[in-house]
Amino acid sequence: MINISNLDLLTLRIFVLAAHTRSLTLTSEHVFMTLSAVSKRINELEKLIGQRLFDRRPQGLHLTPAGEFILMQAKSVVASVDLLTKNMNEFLVGISENIKVWANTSSIVQFLPNDLYAFQTLHPDMKILLEERLSIEIIKALNHAEIDIGIFSGNIDARGLEKKTYRIDQMVVVAPSMFRPEMGEECDFSQIVDQRFVGLNNGSAILDLIKDAAVSLGKTLDIPFQVTSFEAVISLIEAGLGISVLPRSAVIRTAREKLAYY
């Protein structure tokens, strides 16, 4: 029999988070604990239950059948405690605390979902109000104190704001695979500046970035196609209508076999 008194809420939260991220390293970063401390928590939970909860594989953690079953129960327990905490806080304080966040597309596609999940898991009484906006809109809203936090591209002028680096994008050239033999595994922007481009709409920080790169070479980009999302850019590239420069992580999520990126 399992002694329920040996179960603690933090360990259950760590287990739920590890199942979501499929990485003990990411989990340790999210809960601000050492990797060894997080690993010990998972091992102790497995010993308590008497079952392996994860298979450790090179590509990440994978739930065992026992882990899948326990995850459902753990989520239910955590959710119940979170609801109790929320109700008690609202009773004592009168309102729940809201944080208004605007973020650009790149950060939402690549980084924010797991970070927001981790934050809400650790701070269930705080409500995040997230909107996707252009970087220039985000900076304007910050300057007018309309939002609490903004996540925007680093190449946008944001003088007067308190800034900290959130994540670093690696930009890659995205092109039909036929371009690979000509350009090799890597290329300089000067090698592609004369190509036809597919771009994001005006106001996009990425569009401004590649336009500025072209200007620095004394060139003007040919951008006959402009759309609102990474997925739309990639679809047009797949059709052979041009090339683009996009964040690597965003491309990996959506690129198909017809494309090359480097």
Score class of each variant (00 low, 15 high):
residue 7 L to R: 02
residue 111 F to M: 01
residue 101 V to L: 13
residue 195 Q to P: 00
residue 207 L to C: 04
residue 215 V to S: 05
residue 31 V to I: 13
residue 84 L to H: 10
residue 124 P to Y: 14
residue 223 I to W: 00
residue 68 E to G: 03
residue 209 L to M: 15
residue 204 S to C: 07
residue 226 Q to V: 02
residue 58 P to A: 04
residue 96 S to G: 15
residue 115 D to A: 12
residue 143 N to G: 15
residue 249 S to F: 04
residue 66 A to R: 11
residue 124 P to F: 15
residue 165 T to H: 02
residue 212 D to C: 09
residue 124 P to I: 15
residue 206 I to H: 08
residue 73 Q to D: 01
residue 32 F to C: 07
residue 1 M to D: 12
residue 14 I to F: 06
residue 141 A to C: 01
residue 54 F to I: 13
residue 114 N to T: 12
residue 112 L to R: 09
residue 58 P to W: 10
residue 248 R to C: 00
residue 103 A to V: 13
residue 226 Q to W: 00
residue 127 K to S: 10
residue 29 E to V: 04
residue 166 Y to E: 03
residue 177 S to G: 00
residue 96 S to T: 14
residue 22 R to F: 07
residue 141 A to V: 08
residue 105 T to N: 07
residue 145 A to C: 11
residue 246 L to F: 04
residue 233 V to I: 12
residue 6 N to M: 11
residue 200 L to V: 06
residue 51 Q to M: 14
residue 53 L to S: 05
residue 244 S to G: 09
residue 37 A to Y: 07
residue 5 S to Y: 07
residue 69 F to V: 14
residue 249 S to I: 03
residue 261 Y to A: 02
residue 57 R to I: 14
residue 197 F to T: 07
residue 172 V to Q: 01
residue 193 V to Y: 07
residue 232 A to T: 09
residue 6 N to V: 03
residue 74 A to W: 05
residue 250 A to L: 06
residue 28 S to M: 11
residue 102 W to L: 11
residue 113 P to R: 07
residue 18 A to T: 09
residue 225 F to S: 00
residue 97 E to P: 06
residue 81 V to G: 00
residue 178 M to A: 04
residue 153 S to H: 13
residue 21 T to H: 11
residue 31 V to E: 05
residue 259 L to Q: 10
residue 175 A to L: 09
residue 150 G to M: 03
residue 28 S to H: 05
residue 56 R to S: 04
residue 254 T to L: 15
residue 213 A to Y: 10
residue 95 I to Y: 15
residue 14 I to Q: 02
residue 237 I to E: 06
residue 131 E to P: 01
residue 87 N to K: 14
residue 62 H to I: 13
residue 231 E to L: 08
residue 241 L to A: 06
residue 88 M to G: 03
residue 81 V to E: 12
residue 257 E to P: 04
residue 218 G to A: 09
residue 8 D to W: 04
residue 86 K to D: 10
residue 73 Q to N: 09
residue 159 R to A: 06
